[in-house]
Design a protein around this nucleic acid. Structure first.
Length: 154
DNA sequence: GCCAACGTTGGC
DNA sequence: GCCAACGTTGGC
């Protein structure tokens, strides 16, 4: 069991968009960074905890709790010529990109990046580090526990 | 829209 | 395999 913070641009897929989806589940396609891919492909398991984070928007922060609900499988968009995530070097035999499915557990009152920065318990949170751009980062169990038990408001 | 930080590309 | 140039991310 591991814990993850996963960034999504709300203009692309917000917590409300996720809530409206069939089974409240979304395929986390479009990751085109090897480190983030490797986290999904090599380290994620069904049941892992996910903080659903809104990035690149007016109010960045944690918008909900979710969970990993599939193992990794080839990202369909890499084969779709009409998609902006199309990758001409990927083939069905040797896919380059993978994704898992993520299911909503619950929407929460937004925990803003501002608030996250105020807690010394979270000073090592990867997402808060200067220059960090990784869209998927692992969380320590202690960080997960602190956020989900101390900061979450419904 | 700015720009710091970082990842990727490709010539050599 | 180095590294300059370029592209992207994402908070501000």
């Amino acid at each position: 069991m591991r814990y993850w913070l996963m960034k999504s641009e709300p203009g692309d897929c917000s917590i409300d968009d996720l809530a409206a989806m069939k089974d409240q589940t979304v395929a986390w396609y479009g990751v085109r960074n090897y480190q983030a891919r490797n986290f999904m492909r090599d380290q994620m398991s069904v049941g892992d905890g996910v903080l659903f984070y809104h990035s690149n928007c007016k109010e960045p922060g944690i918008a909900g709790i979710a969970e990993v609900c599939s193992t990794a499988y080839p990202d369909a968009k890499q084969f779709d010529k009409k998609s902006k995530y199309f990758d001409e070097k990927a083939t069905q035999e040797t896919p380059r990109w993978f994704n898992v499915d993520v299911k909503l557990v619950k929407k929460i009152a937004l925990i803003s990046i501002e608030e996250l920065k105020h807690h010394p318990e979270l000073e090592n949170l990867r997402t808060l580090q200067r220059g960090n751009r990784l869209s998927i980062t692992p969380l320590d169990p202690a960080e997960w526990r602190f956020i989900t038990t101390r900061l979450v408001r419904s």
